[in-house]
Design a protein around this nucleic acid. Structure first.
Length: 1148
RNA sequence: GCGCGCGUAGCUCAGUUGGUUAGAGCGCCACCCUGAUAAGGUGGAGGUCCCAAGUUCGAAUCUUGGCGCGCGCACCA
């Protein structure tokens, strides 16, 4: 028999008990064990960084990541869930720096790389307990004990293999990258960090003359005018760029004859034509246009840079071009598409060292020249942000501080055409906000991803993205504009780049594993870690492959005898770690061959939208490069490459929206605009939070996280489900309904299993309400499976919610009299078959519902399963709902007609109540009659309705139900045009046709359409519109003066006249209600019998009670009911204005 | 600035290929029902469908241009 249920559930307490039981029982492991050998459902955990507290956004991700593996497991698939942790990267270093109170790389090095790394490794786990606790508390089933960790040696070595592979295929190369550089701290900043530090500042804005030169290199009187807001980059000028398609003009200042300005060398300026007006305005003078030309004609002209920092005197230095001929290597006009006329002069000063676009110009120019003869990178700024001796004017001073001197110098030489202040946003260091960042070239290692653009796009094409627009939108666009992956980081805590360089020749090679390194000739330094470990045995052996120990390992150079190979100093971008996890989580290809073969690619992954350029990209890029078509990776013995078929490494990806705080702003700790997940769990439970995530919005919308919304999502589903369950248990205990006493061999309590129960009646033989309930159940099951297979849990959750509503507000309510009937449901001689049937139906429905809901709300469903299945049946049934199979719809139980008709009855009942409310007739007051006008119903539905008059009467507390045969008494009909049909045909005549239809005699029109199939409607202003039967819609409206309610399906009219008998019945119902209230107040058991004594001065009420004495007694479980005149003992109540005292005595 | 997404009731969101009076849930108010009920029912109040222009017989829906929010890429000579 079921255990008693407490009426007011304490979900958090239930969940804790369930979680404990799972832990003790090893339920997760069992759920896997059951499916061993089955078809795999491959899931990858995108590794969270355990370097901060988990927040509600992480809960959403983890809820989604839990739902589908649970579902698929119940569907019979084998889904391993290996946890993972992202442990490398700048955020970890920053965290440690904060702790140490230091900032810059110099300070880290002063502290010591070795102890710094140790601190990083320890710091990573700082919040791990929190993460693990959250994971368990949420019911996120994942194997934390087998988690992969990106700093572990096996993971690092997998990454090394991947990088070695790329290196050997020539896909890993060294180049320059223009980075945002914090000169004072000596470090590059990530784009995220740069984004945090923008400030609006006023910088000098200078217009500088670049005089064109003649063949001998002498300046002419004609100058290009370039514009810049960073004067300090002018000494490193290398090119001037124009747009080839723009029109440029040569201007000569209009001045009084003979008065040539003395302070200007150039008398003629070249600027873009469209900027002449702005330019003239700035200079507050006037110009004559001397000449007009296309930008293309300027290309190739040489000019004099503003400083002779790098330019030798004399004619321009030229070098041979690959295409033949020769060209000046620098200080030449080039064509560039990025030149715009939004501001400036249409002529761009190009200093490749200090701008990414500028650097692109240099790279393009270098490609035109024979190798080695083209332009090099000109740079007179040191990494600390000061000018080098190459530019004596600023030597040793921070570049930005030299802007003023540079301007002054230019003015002195007559090259400064104009100067002003320019207000714009400029990035500063987020840690030291007075330090401006500068763009600066750094050596960097790159992966040649841009060469694989087409393959990555082809791979992307095959991925199922949810929402769909990610594929062609955000992600597709990102791939289209792919640039090579800047892999290296000049930092400390990360996977070391496994490249060793010859001291002498500078030649490099990649190492694919630590053993391969040890096998190198003349290797030394591998003992550095051993010594450290001997000194501190707590040191993790995983640090062996990290800085600084790995840097100590050197070996003989194969490129130059007697020379040593040393590792390059960089570590790599930690996104590469995360993207390598599909194989690196197994240590593949050095180990884990079987695991990798079975777990690639993933069927399903999910993260928030910010991972588009993060984990989604890193995975796709690495997988495409390593395993795409044409790649034949060199593998250790035993390892086999995966199939190259797209998509890989993941097939379906749900991209989650971001979660905002209570105020609709970004969640932020400092703003305190969200509740900690733990507080939500304690107050409402994990299932409440999960249901909120699943059922309140599609997962890719931006979610407003609000405690109120979570709280409010509880009653509509969890509580309602619990109430139904509680109802079943309460009455089953009273009536002795113990399913185990009917069923020796319960199997998994599926429909077919229950059918073996003693006294089971096939569904087809059961009452209509039961057949309807099981039909709804089967339909919901079909919808759920269909939606979940399509990764549409939002729709599935909504269907589930509707099902619970159907059970609670229709099946249980309509079945109450069966549950409350006198007989028992224990299979004994007193058993009432109708009651037993109701139990079986409700029991089956709840069991199935529990399994349907299990992946969504694993705790509550487990509790239901426990009491409904394992308590009665013990170990004859699965010990956990998560060890059952997901229900599959029984098409044979779906009765579409019944479902449609029951919906119609529910609609009529609802309309009837609305009609009563309109007339202020409460439901306890019986009424004589209800009439229903059904719109467009099928004849057999109407017959069915008439056969269910009792049901409607009962719901509405009326004596008689009738389908109205003369609807025109109550309703008016309006004929409306079906705009979708008539619109295209009538076009501009439509408004007139609509008016004509509205004015026409609806009955006559409908009759005509019925008989002839068509009718002609005269239009105002002439002409007629031909209307056919299907071109119109008929709307029925209750005529004024009737107590009625309407919907598109029906109009329900309630007869509102009251007779004396009806009034008496109403009074009696009121009395019954009053008695029930008393019973409740006296805390009587549902089964307690009572004696009733009524006393009232009202003769009407006495008469009513005497007339319906048996009814009152039956309804209130009274063995006796007496009615006396006058005032009696007991509770005094008012029955519609009649005084009454009720005295209740329990008997037995 | 560029790209992607979003903008509908106090809140969270639906709104099919353009179509008739823009819906639901929650919240609020009123009434009702209640022998599972922190539940349920009925009604009410609550909307410039972000703004503007255009296309169309007809626009929340399509087009264009703005505005606001989020994210990403840049911040630019």
């Amino acid at each position: 028999m079921f255990e008693p249920v407490r009426g007011k559930p304490d979900f958090p307490a239930v969940e804790k008990a369930i979680a404990d039981a799972w832990r003790v029982d090893g339920t997760y492991a069992k759920s896997l064990e059951r499916r061993r050998g089955a078809k795999r459902f491959v899931f990858y955990e995108g590794p969270p960084t355990a370097n901060g507290m988990p927040h509600p956004g992480h809960c959403l991700t983890r809820a989604i990541k839990d739902l589908y593996p649970r579902y698929r497991t119940m569907r019979g698939e084998y889904c391993e869930r290996k946890a993972g942790w992202d442990t490398h990267g700048l955020p970890v270093e920053v965290e440690v720096c904060k702790e140490l109170g230091i900032h810059s790389k110099a300070e880290i090095e002063a502290f010591g790389i070795e102890p710094f790394i140790h601190k990083c490794q320890q710091s990573v786990w700082r919040y791990m307990r929190e993460w693990e606790a959250l994971t368990e508390r949420m019911g996120f089933w994942i194997d934390l004990s087998a988690a992969y960790v990106t700093y572990h040696r096996s993971f690092v070595e997998s990454v090394w293999w991947a990088l070695g592979e790329l290196f050997d295929r020539g896909l890993l190369y060294e180049g320059h990258k223009i980075v945002w550089w914090w000169a004072q701290g000596g470090t590059a900043l990530s784009s995220g960090e740069v984004g945090q530090g923008y400030k609006e500042v006023a910088d000098p804005s200078v217009y500088v003359a670049f005089p064109l030169v003649d063949d001998a290199g002498r300046p002419t009187a004609r100058s290009l005018v370039a514009w810049t807001t960073t004067p300090w980059t002018l000494p490193s000028n290398q090119f001037a760029a124009v747009h080839p398609d723009l029109t440029y003009v040569v201007l000569r200042e209009t001045c009084s004859p003979g008065a040539v300005p003395a302070d200007r060398v150039a008398a003629e300026f070249i600027v873009a034509e469209s900027l002449v007006a702005a330019f003239t305005e700035k200079l507050k003078t006037s110009f004559d246009v001397v000449e007009t030309c296309q930008g293309a004609t300027l290309v190739g002209r040489s000019y004099l840079p503003p400083f002779d920092t790098f330019r030798p005197a004399g004619a321009p230095t030229t070098a041979p071009l690959l295409a033949g001929g020769a060209d000046a290597i620098a200080w030449r006009v080039v064509a560039a598409d990025f030149v715009t006329t939004d501001s400036g002069t249409g002529i761009v000063h190009v200093a490749p060292a200090f701008g990414e676009v500028d650097y692109g110009v240099l790279v393009a120019e270098q490609a035109r020249f024979a190798a080695g003869s083209g332009p090099g990178l000109l740079n007179c700024v040191a990494p600390d942000g000061t000018f080098t001796d190459v530019f004596p004017m600023g030597s040793g001073r921070f570049v930005k501080e030299c802007d003023r001197d540079i301007s002054r110098d230019l003015r002195g030489r007559g090259l400064l055409v104009h100067q002003e202040q320019y207000v714009h946003d400029y990035p500063f260091c987020w840690r030291a906000d007075s330090d401006p960042l500068i763009q600066y070239p750094r050596k960097s290692w790159f992966i040649r991803t841009s060469q694989f653009r087409a393959q990555m796009l082809a791979n992307n094409e095959r991925i199922d993205w949810l929402p769909e627009h990610i594929k062609q939108g955000r992600f597709g666009n990102f791939l289209e504009t792919n640039v090579d992956w800047a892999l290296s980081r000049e930092r400390y805590w990360g996977t070391p780049l496994p490249i060793w360089r010859c001291e002498t020749t500078g030649r490099t090679e990649a190492v694919r594993s630590f053993d391969a390194l040890l096998a190198k000739p003349g290797v030394s330094g591998a003992d550095a870690f051993d010594r450290a470990h001997a000194a501190d045995p707590t040191l993790s052996p995983d640090l062996r492959v990290h800085k600084p120990y790995i840097d100590a390992v050197t070996y003989d150079s194969p490129f130059a005898a007697g020379s040593r190979m040393r590792r390059v100093t960089e570590v790599i971008d930690c996104w590469f770690d995360s993207g390598a996890m599909p194989f690196a989580q197994w240590g593949w290809p050095h180990a884990g061959h079987a695991e990798f073969a079975a777990q690639f690619p993933a069927d399903f992954i999910s993260e928030a939208i910010d991972q588009t350029r993060g984990w989604f990209y890193s995975q796709l890029a690495i997988s495409t490069l390593l395993f795409g078509p044409g790649a034949s990776p060199a593998l250790p013995a035993g390892a086999a490459p995966p199939a190259a078929d797209y998509p890989h490494p993941f097939k379906t990806c749900i991209v989650l929206g971001h979660m905002l705080g209570e105020d609709g702003q970004k969640m932020s700790k400092s703003r305190r605009n969200y509740k900690e997940p733990a507080a939500i769990f304690d107050a409402y439970g994990a299932d409440a939070l999960r249901w909120f995530f699943f059922a309140t919005q599609p997962p890719w919308t931006t979610i407003r996280y609000s405690e109120r919304a979570i709280r409010e999502s509880v009653p509509e589903f969890l509580l309602r489900l619990w109430n139904v369950y509680s109802f079943l248990v309460i009455y089953a205990r009273i009536d002795g309904f113990d399913p185990a006493s009917f069923l020796a061999d319960p199997g998994t309590l599926d429909h077919a299993d229950l059918a073996r129960a003693r006294g089971w009646r096939p569904v087809a033989e059961r009452g209509e309400l039961d057949r309807w309930m099981l039909s709804e159940l089967a339909d919901a099951t079909a919808v759920m499976v269909d939606r979940l297979d399509a990764y549409d849990h939002f729709a599935a959750a909504q269907r589930l919610s509707a099902l619970v509503d159907a059970v609670s507000n229709w099946f249980v309510r309509r079945s109450r009299d069966r549950f409350w009937a006198a007989g028992r449901a224990d299979g004994g001689p007193d058993t009432d078959p109708a009651k037993l049937e109701a139990y079986w139906t409700l029991y089956e429905t709840l069991l199935t519902l529990t399994r349907l809901a299990a992946p969504f709300v694993p705790f509550v469903t487990e509790e239901l399963w426990r009491n409904l299945a394992t308590v009665p049946f013990g170990d004859r049934v699965p010990t956990s709902v998560h060890l059952t199979d997901y229900p599959m719809a029984r098409a044979d139980l779906v009765d579409g007609d019944l479902v449609r008709r029951m919906a119609l009855v529910r609609e009529i009942a609802s309309l009837g109540r609305a009609a009563r409310a309109n007339a202020r007739l409460k439901v306890r007051q019986p009424l004589a009659k209800v009439e229903v006008i059904v719109a467009d119903a099928r004849a057999d539905d109407v017959r069915w309705l008439e056969a269910h008059a009792d049901l409607v009467c009962d719901e509405l507390n009326v004596k008689q139900f009738e389908i109205c045969r003369e609807p025109d008494r109550y309703i008016a009909r309006v004929v409306l045009p079906d705009l979708k049909k008539l619109g295209p045909r009538l076009g501009k005549d439509l408004p007139r046709a609509r008016d004509a239809l509205a004015k026409a005699d609806a009955v006559a029109l409908l009759t005509a359409l019925q008989q002839h199939g068509r009718a002609e409607v005269p239009l105002a202003g002439g002409g007629v519109a031909v209307v056919e039967r299907d071109d119109v819609l008929v709307r029925t409206t209750a005529k004024p003066g009737w107590t009625a309610a309407e919907s598109p399906l029906a109009v329900v009219v309630v007869a509102s006249e009251l007779t004396a008998d009806l009034v008496a019945e109403g009074l009696v119902r009121e009395v019954v209600h009053a008695v029930q209230t008393q019973r409740k107040a006296l805390d009587l058991e549902f089964t307690d019998r009572i004696e009733l004594a009524f006393a009232t001065d009202s003769a009407d009420l006495r008469a009513a009670l005497e007339a319906h004495r048996d009814y009152v007694a039956a309804e209130t479980l009274a063995v006796r009911a007496t009615v006396a005149a006058g005032a009696g003992d007991g509770e005094s109540v008012d029955i519609d204005g009649h005084p009454l005292t009720i005295s209740i005595r329990t008997v037995g």
